[in-house]
Each structure stands twice: as C-alpha cells, then as structure tokens.
C-alpha cells in the first residue's frame, strides 16, 4: 500500500498526532535512531484531488505538531512511496546522514525574514526611471535597490547577532529572503532584536517562523 511521508525526527519520545491528511492514521517506523512519520494511503484521490489546499494544510499540521516537540526534517508535499519496504530501504540507505543532520539541528529552528521594497522604481515605470530610461539607468536603479536590501540585511543580522547560529540569504528580483538559524528557546529574544532594527521608510520586513530548519540542510 502506498505511503505519504511527512517527516523524520530522532527517535526521542514524542506525541504522535493520531490523524493526518484525509484523516488517515499517522504511523511511525524507526530505523537506526531515526523515526519516520507517514500515513498509509488507500485512496490516492483523497490526497491528490481537491480540496488541495486543505490537504496541504493537514500535511503541515502533522509536521508542525511534531516540530513543536523536537527537530524534524520535513518531506516535500506530496512525497509518496510505494510501500513500507521501500521506506525502510530508503531509511536504511540514508540513516547515518539523517542522524547527523538531526543531531546538528537539535533545538534549532529557522526564522525567515522577507525584505521588500514597498514600491519599486523599476516597476512603477514613470519619472526618471520610467519607460524612456536607458538600459544603463535601469541597471543602476536595480543595483541601488539591491544595495538597499543588502544594507538592511546587514543591519538585521547585526541586531540579532547574539542569537544567530547561521544566516543565509536568497535574493530575488525585487526582494531578499534571509534565513536565520537560532536556538528554539530564543525565538522571542530574536524577534525583539529584529523589531529594534531601524528599517528605512521605503522598505519593509516580513518575519515568519519558527520553521523546521530546511534551509540549513545541505547534506541531503
């Protein structure tokens, strides 16, 4: 019978949610100190058909309920395996890597900071940077916008430096996403530190988390 895999954790005591996606029971399997949470799926249509949003949220609820108790490595939705034998084979093959990752991330969570420009001069299409601008002007404007976001990232990182285990960034066209790895017990202090940072009027910061530290798993 196919399985929907939710996440992995260390084999520490944990309260397992009873029901998962589409009300299927949540089960666990252990291999070499690693525990995998999954549901047996007897009707794939219930997983992959509408309402998909509710299904994805139910998937998240299972992971989050375990993540509130200990560090997890989530699987991406929807990760479906053929049967429990395949799942065991997979865990057997990767158990040492997963064990190392979970040990490293134990007690750590990921906070995300999305740095945005409230109104991009590159998108407005008027004024000095409007439709008549040259390519050089466009590139200069873009560079200026990116510098502003990068400067804010430095300021935020500096504010929260006491709590940071690691900091990563991922730029996009008109924004910058920052990922902070912090101890689970300093989340409130981290938020206060971020809140105390001066943010230029034209920029904004959206902070979310705590999340499982997926952005800091490079071993997989």
């Amino acid at each position: 019978m196919p399985l929907l895999a939710y996440c992995l954790s260390e084999s520490h005591p944990v309260v397992v949610p009873q029901r998962g996606v589409a009300e299927f029971p949540v089960e666990t399997v252990e291999q070499g100190g690693i525990r995998c949470f999954f549901s047996r799926i007897n009707n794939r249509g219930q997983i992959l058909g509408p309402p998909a949003r509710e299904t994805a949220l139910a998937f998240y609820e299972v992971i989050n309920s375990i993540f509130r108790q200990l560090a997890v490595i989530p699987f991406r939705f929807p990760t479906i395996l053929e049967d429990q034998t395949k799942l065991r084979d997979y865990l057997l093959e990767r158990e040492s890597t997963y064990r190392e990752v979970l040990l490293r991330l134990r007690n750590l969570v990921q906070m995300e900071l999305h740095l945005l420009r409230k109104s991009s001069s590159l998108e407005r299409g008027h004024g000095n940077l409007g439709a008549s601008r040259t390519g050089l002007e466009y590139l200069r404007a873009r560079q200026a916008e990116q510098c502003g976001l990068a400067d804010l990232s430095v300021a935020l990182r500096q504010s929260a430096r006491s709590f940071l285990g690691e900091w990563r960034e991922r730029p996009s066209a008109h924004s910058l996403r920052c990922f902070a790895l912090i101890e689970r017990n300093v989340i409130d202090d981290f938020k206060k530190a971020i809140l105390a940072t001066r943010v230029p009027e034209e920029l904004s910061v959206r902070v979310s988390g705590p999340w499982p530290a997926s952005g800091f798993i490079s071993e997989l």
Partner: peptide, 22 residues
Amino acid sequence: SLLDILDHVLNAGVIIRGNLVI
C-alpha cells in the same frame, strides 16, 4: 501565514529522488 505555510509545504523539505517516487 497561509501563503507562508503552503510555500514551506510545497517548496521546502527533502525530496526523495529515483524510483522510490511513484
């Protein structure tokens, strides 16, 4: 928050590659 959650569920996490994916 819903957007953040869906973004994480769908874009973050381990991907199992190979013939284990049906």
